[in-house]
């Protein structure tokens, strides 16, 4: 019996070794391990054996059975792997061929600039306010200390609709509206981004429509040094830690004292070059302490309240930051221009 089992084992292992396909293996499995197979037969015939031999032969038969089953599984894994490898070889592609493009759009550069500015000021506790683009003469001019006969209020410079209505020339009316809404007894800390309009002929440096972001902070005891501190923080975050700022006296009807802010030129590190007109400085924004007339008209007592305001042009800042040579690019919406600023 032992000899028979040993030779069955040898026979089966040989056949397994020769098997090429999963089917070959299956027939080996059926013929040796099946219900009608020789090993089953041996086990069935055990009754005829003497009692003391039975456990020995039984154990051997089971062992042979196990060896064959394991050999089949092993071989099966080899055959499957081979089949997979053959499949993979067939599937191989030229990975250097061009990709199927994923269609993703992107924001306009001005939107990016404005969001970035908004986020910086939000971080400093400013809220974002918006207002109408068609403004009343009162909010656009008068409430900002530009009375009717003011030289800066030439009809030639603004797009009037009626004598009392015009396309807003700055986003400052949103400041006046917000102060009015707060009724003179609550601090105001806001920025107002948006479109503004001037009666200019479009050329490389002028656009009849452009963007502005203005800011306003009114509270008790607001100091000019606060303006300097806030603008400094903004400039360092927006333009880089290494940039210096400087304030220069200037003039706006709605602020007094008024300032213009320059940042040190990045191109020449302040040495003087063509970008900064050899001054080492680049003008970035205007601002100042809110004019007492503006506070008064909005219902804030200038003896108690003071404040600062500032304003900047996202186009100008973008032009400086990216070296863009013509303001009209922002409104032509040439895909080749827009795409450049979809980058991270």
């Amino acid at each position: 019996m032992k000899e028979k089992l040993e030779s069955l084992k040898q026979e089966a292992l040989e056949q397994i070794d020769q098997a090429q396909t999963a089917d070959d293996l299956q027939s080996v499995r059926v013929s040796y391990l099946g219900k009608k197979g020789p090993i089953t037969e041996v086990l069935r015939g055990m009754g005829k054996l003497p009692a003391e031999e039975r456990p020995v032969v039984g154990e051997l038969a089971n062992k042979v059975r196990q060896v064959i089953a394991e050999a089949i599984d092993e071989k099966k894994a080899i055959i499957e792997e081979k089949a997979i490898n053959e499949q993979l070889e067939k599937e191989s592609i030229d990975v250097t061929l061009p990709a199927r493009p994923v269609h993703v759009g992107g924001p306009h550069l001005l939107t990016r600039m404005i969001s970035e500015i908004e986020d910086l000021f939000i971080g400093m506790g400013f809220e974002v306010r918006e207002g109408p683009e068609v403004e009343t003469d009162y909010y656009n001019f008068e409430a900002l200390n530009l009375p009717k006969d003011h030289p800066a209020r030439d009809m030639q410079d603004s797009f009037y609709i009626t004598e009392e209505l015009l396309m807003r020339t700055h986003t400052s009316p949103v400041q006046a509206r917000t102060m009015n809404a707060y009724k003179g007894n609550k601090p105001v800390k806001m920025i107002c981004p948006g479109k503004v309009y001037r009666r200019d002929t479009d050329d490389a440096t002028h656009s009849h429509q452009f963007m502005q972001v203005e800011g306003l902070y009114v509270d008790k005891n607001v100091r000019m040094s606060d303006l300097k501190g806030v603008l400094n923080q903004f400039a360092k975050q927006f333009f880089g830690e290494e940039r210096e700022i400087r304030l220069r006296p200037s003039f706006f009807p709605f602020t007094e004292p008024s300032v213009e802010m320059d940042i040190s030129c990045k191109v020449c590190q302040g040495e003087g070059c063509s970008v900064c007109k050899k001054t080492g400085w680049i003008e970035i924004l205007g601002g100042g302490m809110v004019h007492p007339r503006v506070l008064e008209m909005a219902g804030y007592d200038p003896e108690i309240y003071s404040g600062f305001a500032f304003g900047m042009g996202p186009e100008r800042i973008a032009m400086l930051k990216y070296g863009i040579d013509d303001i009209r690019h922002f409104y032509t919406n040439d895909r080749r221009f827009l795409k450049q600023y979809h980058q991270a």
């Binding site: 908004e118 000021f121 939000i122 971080g123 400093m124 506790g125 400013f126 809220e127 974002v128 601090p187 800390k189 902070y217 509270d219 008790k220 005891n221 607001v222 100091r223 000019m224 040094s225 606060d226 300097k228 501190g229 806030v230 400094n232 923080q233 400087r246 304030l247 220069r248 006296p249 007094e256 004292p257 008024s258 300032v259 302490m289």
Partner: peptide
Amino acid sequence: LEEVARIYGYDQLDYTLPQGAQQAGGLT
């Protein structure tokens, strides 16, 4: 005030941050 400030020198002013009550900024 502007006359005094500009002759004193805008660059002589300190960098300070507002002292008023802090509010959370944000978008609507």
